[in-house]
Design a protein around this nucleic acid. Structure first.
Length: 382
RNA sequence: CUGCUAGGUUCGUCG
């Protein structure tokens, strides 16, 4: 039974969710942990509905089952749903509390998060780090630092989170200092600082740190590829990309987007079809390449051809038409999207409003506002 | 009695 569970997890972690499910179905004498493994497999790829369905069908549940469901909702920022589960859970522990806290990383409600954090009956390094990240991602660098200073014993994740906190709030030098003072540097921590340099456009710094690394991974390479392209040095991007031993889909997508940014559309076509496993991001970059050239019909054609869409690809198309004074078309897209079961976000909302606005449909804009609020819990975008 | 659940980095839309 243990080995069956391990197999399910292994399949899922390598992207074979379907095989994991088949294994699960054929498995004799499923235990709670087997169900949990399958729940976790779906949660990992954000198949929230499948998690919920499976959870409801479980003959028995334990703490881990409940926590997995809470985490699944929290992962998509659905605090309300997570809360309902949390409150109806028969048992809770520090993992349940931390899982629900994570919902606020997405909702950006810092004060609510802090309130929850303070109410936690028990805290550990993970919950501290989660709260630290929420602070950092919402511009509260000093509060993040304050929390960090109260941590008795660091590990590389909490230390790395603080490095990232400085990075994303513009203090790259401090981030670098923290990296140099780090007890046990790992690749991931170095990647954080590389990304910070890249973001700031400081490719010389990024490169010298890159050269110092004795161990690199795909993320390291991808960040560098992105950085060079950002400065228009597509040749350097390409050179690094070609030297990359094990490209994953993200590497290919990075190179694809790099060409897109530099308006190298012929190269894009070549790269696109060479990608071993295209995903929704690859397709959305392809859409964007047409949007940039104002080829809206082609953009739409690509959209219809892609195997599966997500909110971002819908938004890409919707915004393209919204800008082109196609208010009604955007509205139809929006309705279609909802019918298809996708949850609009604030980017969607902005697109619809933009199109209504310059179509002179001000009344419709206003009524849209209130319906967005009530139907989707969305407020006016920032 | 290291099977299943919570924390840090890279790619696409809007910013």
């Amino acid at each position: 039974s243990v080995s069956w569970n391990t197999m399910i997890t292994a399949y899922a972690q390598n992207g074979y969710i379907y095989d994991a499910r088949i294994l699960f179905e054929r498995m004799p004498g499923k235990e709670v942990s087997s169900w949990n493994a399958m729940l976790a497999a779906y949660a990992q790829i954000f198949y929230t509905n499948e998690v919920k369905d499976l959870f409801d069908r479980m003959p028995h549940r334990n703490l881990i089952s409940w926590n997995t469901l809470i985490g699944a909702y929290a992962d998509r920022g659905d605090f309300e749903a997570a809360k309902v589960v949390f409150e109806s859970a028969a048992v809770r522990d520090v993992v349940s509390w931390t899982a629900i806290l994570k919902a606020f990383v997405h909702t950006r409600e810092v004060e609510q998060a802090k309130e929850l954090f303070d109410r936690m009956p028990e805290k550990n390094l993970v919950s501290y780090t989660t709260m630290l990240v929420i602070f950092a991602k919402n511009g509260c660098l000093d509060r993040a630092k304050g929390l960090f200073d109260r941590i008795p014993q660091y590990d590389s994740i909490s230390w790395g989170a603080m490095i990232e906190a400085y990075s994303e709030n513009g203090f790259v030098t401090v981030a670098r200092e923290m990296l140099d003072r780090m007890p046990h540097q790992d690749v991931l921590a170095v990647n954080i600082v590389i990304a910070a340099y890249v973001h700031a456009g400081h490719m010389e710094e990024a490169k010298s740190l890159f050269d110092l690394m004795k161990e690199r991974d795909s993320t390291t390479l991808n960040a560098m590829v992105y950085g060079y392209a950002q400065l228009g040095h597509i040749d350097l991007s390409r050179h690094l990309f070609d030297s990359h031993p094990d490209k994953d889909t993200t590497s290919w997508n990075t190179m694809l987007a790099a060409c897109c940014r530099c308006w190298l559309f012929e190269e894009m076509v070549e790269i696109f079809w060479r990608i071993p496993e295209r995903n929704v991001v690859s397709w959305t970059v392809a859409i964007q390449s047409h949007v940039l050239r104002n080829q809206l019909r082609l953009a739409k054609a690509v959209f219809e051809r892609m195997p599966e869409q997500d909110v971002v690809s819908w938004n890409a198309l919707l915004h393209a038409f919204a800008r082109e004074e196609n208010g009604n078309f955007s509205m139809n897209l929006f309705r279609e999207m909802v019918v298809e079961g996708f949850k609009p976000d604030e980017t969607t909302l902005l697109g619809v409003l933009v199109s209504c606005n310059h179509d002179g449909l001000l009344e419709r804009t206003k009524s849209s506002f209130s319906s967005f609020r009530s139907d989707f819990g969305l407020d006016c975008p920032r």
